[in-house]
């Protein structure tokens, strides 16, 4: 089972409203791998994640998640969407996480003791217990975001898809949350795809980077993909990658 890759894409083309977002993408992500997903706004990060969830069927090619078609593998997948202004300002973090439990089945929103334990565990994993009893409308953006990461962790998924979980966090909290996600993923053997804008927030945490630009995708170790030559080829324009002595990466582009 562990031999099956977490994600395999063969010649995948994704379209939105008839416009090609990603063309002919082939890649394989082994299980237990932490992938940082990078690319400019509108380059197709969210689109790629939606395809992995089975919400956007590829117009060409084939995607398998845990060896299955995406829609069937959805029960193994935890997802944190990018749009994050949840309704229900008067409800609490507990209510938000509780809504997720068996939320796809008919019935009353009734929680068992085991469900409450699962919610508590997920909240503790991202250190969100202190504000989980407060109303969502009273939380800061960063606090709400941590609740949503907790929500993605409920049920111990084998694949975690996080769409910009670090956006709008302060630099210290950003690093803290990234490391927490990395620790949890390693401890549970989860595969993670985490989209972000700052490479440095995920350095040391991620095993590979997946760069998307101009409809193309490039997957590989940080040192191979994040180089001036490889990124220039991907963007089709000169891109300069600098590394500071402390290991920080700076990606800069002329005229972009």
């Amino acid at each position: 089972m562990t031999d099956t890759p977490a994600i395999a894409c063969e010649g995948v083309t994704l379209e939105r409203d008839g416009r090609t977002v990603l063309a002919d993408v082939s890649l394989t992500i082994p299980q237990g791998c932490f992938v940082g997903l990078f690319g400019a706004n509108g380059s197709g990060k969210t689109t790629f994640l939606r395809a992995l969830l089975g919400l956007l069927p590829p117009t060409q090619g084939r995607i398998t998640v845990m060896g299955q078609p995406p829609a069937q593998a959805a029960c193994h997948v935890g997802y944190m969407p990018q749009v994050r202004t949840p309704a229900g300002a008067s409800l609490t973090g507990y209510d938000l996480l509780g809504s997720d439990i068996r939320g796809d089945r008919w019935g009353l929103p009734w929680l068992r003791a085991s469900d409450r334990a699962a919610i508590k565990e997920a909240l503790e994993a991202v250190d969100a217990t202190v504000f989980a009893a407060r109303r969502l409308g009273e939380l800061s953006g960063g606090e709400r975001q941590r609740l949503l990461i907790a929500q993605a962790l409920i049920g111990n998924p084998r694949l975690l898809l996080l769409d910009e979980p670090l956006a709008s966090l302060d630099p210290v909290r950003m690093r803290d949350v990234a490391e927490r996600i990395g620790t949890i993923a390693r401890a549970r053997g989860m595969t993670v795809i985490c989209s972000a804008h700052d490479l440095n927030a995920l350095t040391g945490v991620m095993d590979s980077v997946l760069y998307v630009a101009r409809g193309h995708a490039r997957l590989g170790p940080v040192d191979e993909v994040v180089t001036s030559a490889s990124l220039s080829a991907l963007y089709g324009a000169p891109v300069e990658v600098c590394r500071s002595p402390s290991g920080r990466i700076l990606v800069a582009a002329d005229g972009l």
Binding site: L53, L55, A74, D100
Partner: peptide, 15 residues
Amino acid sequence: RPLLFASLQPELAEA
């Protein structure tokens, strides 16, 4: 239950 889920987290519910 699904209505509560869909109201609070439409993308997640869809997924």
